[in-house]
């Protein structure tokens, strides 16, 4: 069965190539097999749906189309860059990140309740050094949960960060976050 499905994906790729204008050459990239990723996504979504509905059969009226459509996106969306996670670094990261997000929430809650608030808000640019893809998305989303920082905008290779208190050491905080995300995705350190 997997061999057959891999054949069909190999058939469709060259069939689509001539449809493209000559000025847009097909980007050669190693494909991990769309059909395989389709079935992996299908299985994951089916398990999630099953757990959501306690494996009720009548819920499949909605679940089956939803799961098929979700897994079908594999054929529509461009494949993401490959990434892997180092399990030990992931555990360390989750613990560290949990502590940081509690600190961030306590900090902002204390400011909200305190009469003076102690705000000195402003924007800072921070150059991105993590590669595009999962690691960078992770970085941008976690900035917002660290104490006093909010990722506001992307600007040619840099992220514009809004700070509640611009006296804080942004470079040290974000540098540490970057190093931890690099470890999480098992990226080579510079």
């Amino acid at each position: 069965m997997p061999t057959r499905s891999r054949d069909t994906s190999a058939d469709t790729a060259p069939a689509r190539a001539p449809a493209l204008p000559a000025s847009l050459p097909e980007v050669p990239r190693p494909q991990p097999g769309r059909t395989r990723r389709f079935f992996a996504t299908l299985l994951t979504l089916a398990v999630i749906w099953g757990l959501l509905t306690e494996f009720r059969l009548d819920a499949l009226v909605f679940g089956l189309p939803a799961v098929l459509a979700g897994a079908g996106l594999v054929f529509v969306l461009p494949p993401g860059r490959g990434w892997r996670i180092s399990p030990r670094a992931a555990l360390v990261f989750v613990l560290w990140f949990g502590v940081q997000s509690v600190r961030g929430a306590v900090d902002v809650a204390a400011r909200a309740f305190s009469p003076r608030m102690g705000l000195r808000p402003g924007f800072r640019r921070y150059p991105l050094s993590l590669p595009e893809g999962a690691a960078r998305v992770m970085f941008l989303n976690t900035i917002t949960l660290l104490p006093g920082t909010l990722s506001a905008e992307l600007e040619e290779g840099a992220v514009v960060v809004h700070m509640l208190d611009t006296r804080a050491d942004l470079e040290a905080d974000l540098g540490q976050l970057e190093a931890r995300i690099a470890a999480l995705f098992a990226l080579p350190r510079k």
């Binding site: 400011r111 909200a112 309740f113």
Partner: peptide, 29 residues
């Protein structure tokens, strides 16, 4: 309490960015 803090921040903080800090962090926790 953290939800209340997020809402108080939303009402008291001076601009949209500071309010986003309150909502994303305090309500998240």
């Amino acid at each position: 309490v953290f939800f209340v803090a997020g809402t108080v921040g939303l009402l008291r903080f001076p601009d949209i960015y500071c309010r986003l800090h309150a909502l994303t962090k305090a309500d998240g926790l």
